[in-house]
Every structure is written in structure tokens, then in C-alpha cells.
Design a protein around this nucleic acid. Structure first.
Lengths: 211, 211
DNA sequence: AGCGTACCGTACCGTACGGTACGCTCAGTA
DNA sequence: TACTGAGCGTACCGTACGGTACGGTACGCT
């Protein structure tokens, strides 16, 4: 039996990671040049090895998406008691991180691939990207919101709905514009300002003065 | 000289429109079955005619995007003096329309194609989609916002920034989730509720009691 | 009637790409 | 040294698809 890094959920070996990085590199460099030949050439490996490791093209893409996803997750530090400044800071961090992710070339390229794939329903990259992007951050933000509510700093009924508003205030039209090819490069300063504005707006909508 | 519906900006003939509708139908039905053969078959026309009319595959796609765009635009009724109820109503209309558009299968399919295309930079469908989607609605909403400000109902410095916030509050995570393949069908009721919530939030952020 | 034009249907061509086969090298092992 | 297996490079196969060519038909126009 060969070592498929797709069917089973084994972590890819170092060599395999290098291959997946090559795939990411190609995606970023030129989205539609993403052929098995090109991958093999760039990764200096043989196509046969690619097929042995990843099964087929879809398996390679899936493994790549998972590999990238595995790098994005940071620690889930559970929030304890919050004061207003800490809450603001935590939200600001999330907003900055999210804006950095979605405006990064890797994320743009990966989302393009996954979206193109979502049209033809085989092996849903879209689901994986959603699970590790939009939903993963939701699961990380919602506890913070709930801690904020527990501390009397926020008021909302449904944390999912509150998070979605936060998401909208942070992302606005940025992701769709990038995906559709607009240049639009955000520097760190602009991201910080954007994140700050989003947090201010969110707190204006959901915050309440501590009684 | 042949009648190219691409190079020049002539409106497509009725027959050509039928062809473009066939393309849209194929896009919606099965995104990656979008081959020139399939289009010709579905439109009951010959491939040669397709090439004569649209130049090449890209030209056909471009014409299709333009054709769909030409159908979305509604009238630009200039806003005069606004009272609070009218402003809210206008914003609600925009929000409902926008949500209907982005959640429609045609929009999803078209955006998928355009986004996939945006990876490989030839003939930017992405630009056309942006111009006729995100930016077109921006140009329609901003005058309303400015009229609202003129009437003392809204307060903001930058109408573009205010619009982007509105855009984020309305769209939130819906478009990206749909593009990535989540099922997520919104019925008319949910859209109306969503739009209402977004407008409430927007007014909470930017509204001001009339002095 | 004769001719041109527009178009349909279909056959065809070239190429790019997913997937496979095979020979070669080289490290590890006994 | 001989054997094994992993993996590189390359050649190869089949097919799908973009694009072209061509015969046939319907409909003007003169």
C-alpha cells in the first residue's frame, strides 16, 4: 500500500510539504498554469510520485488546501474575564488577522481555485476552504463575543448573527474585489485602520456601557 | 467584415441574445460543462457562427457577462428631498435587490467564471463583473446617501466609505459562502429580514436625529 | 432562374493535459 | 557486492476541447 496523503489524514512528510508549497507557489504565480507537469517540474519530482502520493489532481489540490489551512490556525487561547480594552484588543486582532489572510496572494489564489472547483461538484475544496476560513474564525470569535456579553460589555441574542455582522464590517467588499482581480493592495497601516474602524462600528452596534 | 458583438459594443441581435442565454443556462446548469460544442448544441447554432459572432471563447464569455449585466441595471431615479421613512425605504430596496442578485444562481455562476478567469489575466471578466455589480450599485447608492446627508438624516465624511460599510452589513458572508459552494438558499422572507437588519444597523451607525 | 449571404450540422485538426509506463540513479541493508 | 525500494526524468497514450473547413439549406435580391 502506498502512502497516500489524501485518503488518510496523515500529515504530509517534509518532502510532500515541499511539493504542496510548490503547488501554492504555482497557484500564486499563475493560476491557470497549474498542471501536473508544471507541479512536477517546479517541485523537482516525477509525476508518478505525485500520483502515488496524492492519487489524482483533485487529491493534490485537496492536500494543498489542507496544508495551507493547517498553517493558518493559531492558538485558541480561551478568554477569561474581559474588560473593555481587552475585548477591543481581541477583536482588533481578529480583524487584522482576517484582513491579512484574505488580502494575501495565497488566500486569493486558493479561493479562486476552490471557487472555480465549486462549480463542478467533485471533491469539495470549497467546503474545506470555508471550514478553515470563514467558519474557523467564527468559532474563534464567538467565544470572545460571549465572554464580552458575560462581562456585560456586549448585548446580543445570537452570537452567530453578531459574528456575521462583525465579519461583514471587517471584510466589506474587499474579498470579492480581490477575487475578481482588482489590484487593491492593502498595506499594514491601512489594514490596522480598517480593522479599527470595523471594531469601533461593531462596538457601537453591540456594545453597552458597563452598568 | 463580420458582425462581431464583442470588439464593437453593438447590442447583440435577438438571435445572439438567445445564444448568450444558452451560455448562461449552461453556466448555471453545470459550470465546467461550458464548452463551445455544448453552447452550439444548446443554442442550436453552429460553432462556426459562434466564432464569427464572438471571435473566440473569451469573446463569447465577455459578451455573456455584458449581456447579463445589461439586464440587471434598473432605472437611476434621482433622489430629491428625503424624509427618514423614504431614506430607509430606498436603502431597504437596494439591500433587497442586492441580496437577490448575489444569491441568484446566475450571479453565482457568472461570478465563479469571472473569478476563475481572473487568475489567468486575459480579457478581464472580473473587471466587467465588478463594474456592473459592486461598483454600479455603489454609484446608485451613494447619491441616496448624500441626499440623506443633505437632508440632515445621515452624518458621514466620505460617501464611499459609508457605502462600503453598508455593503458589508448587507452582504456579510453570504456571497463568499455561495461562491464556495454552500447550499444556503435564502427565501424572499429571509432576504427582507436580512435587508431590514442591515438598514437598521447602518442607520444606527450613520443616522442622526433630525435637528 | 441565378447568385450571394447567413447559417446549421458535422467532420476534422492540433494541442494541451491528466494519467501511465519504464528506465535510471542512489541510499540503505545484509 | 548484490539486492531492494523510493523516487527522478522522460516518453508515451487517450481524450477533451478550442478552433477551422466544408457541404447543405433557406432566404433574400436582381
Amino acid at each position: 500500500m502506498q502512502t497516500s496523503a489524501t485518503a488518510e489524514q496523515e500529515a504530509p512528510s517534509a518532502r510532500q510539504q515541499a511539493v504542496l508549497d510548490a503547488v501554492l507557489g504555482l497557484m500564486v504565480a499563475d493560476g491557470d498554469q497549474l498542471t501536473m507537469d508544471a507541479v512536477a517540474r517546479r517541485a523537482s519530482c516525477s509525476k508518478e510520485t505525485l500520483y502515488k502520493w496524492f492519487g489524482d489532481r483533485d487529491g493534490l489540490l485537496t492536500a494543498t488546501v489542507r496544508w495551507q489551512a493547517s498553517r493558518v490556525h493559531a492558538g485558541y487561547d480561551a478568554a477569561q474575564v474581559l474588560d473593555g480594552a481587552t475585548l477591543r484588543e481581541r477583536l482588533q486582532d481578529f480583524a487584522v488577522t482576517w484582513l491579512e489572510v484574505i488580502s494575501g496572494p495565497t488566500s486569493v489564489a486558493l479561493n479562486r481555485i476552490a471557487i472555480a472547483h465549486a462549480g463542478s461538484h467533485k471533491s469539495n475544496l470549497g467546503g474545506i476552504v470555508l471550514a478553515n476560513g470563514r467558519f474557523a474564525i467564527g468559532e474563534r470569535v464567538k467565544p470572545v463575543l460571549e465572554a464580552g456579553r458575560a462581562a456585560g460589555l456586549l448585548a446580543f441574542a445570537d452570537s452567530e448573527a453578531a459574528f456575521r455582522t462583525f465579519f461583514g464590517l471587517v471584510g466589506r467588499d474587499i474579498q470579492i474585489r480581490l477575487l475578481l482581480g482588482e489590484a487593491l493592495d492593502l498595506d499594514a497601516d491601512e489594514i490596522r485602520r480598517d480593522a479599527g474602524r470595523a471594531v469601533d462600528q461593531f462596538l457601537a452596534l453591540y456594545g453597552q456601557a458597563k452598568p
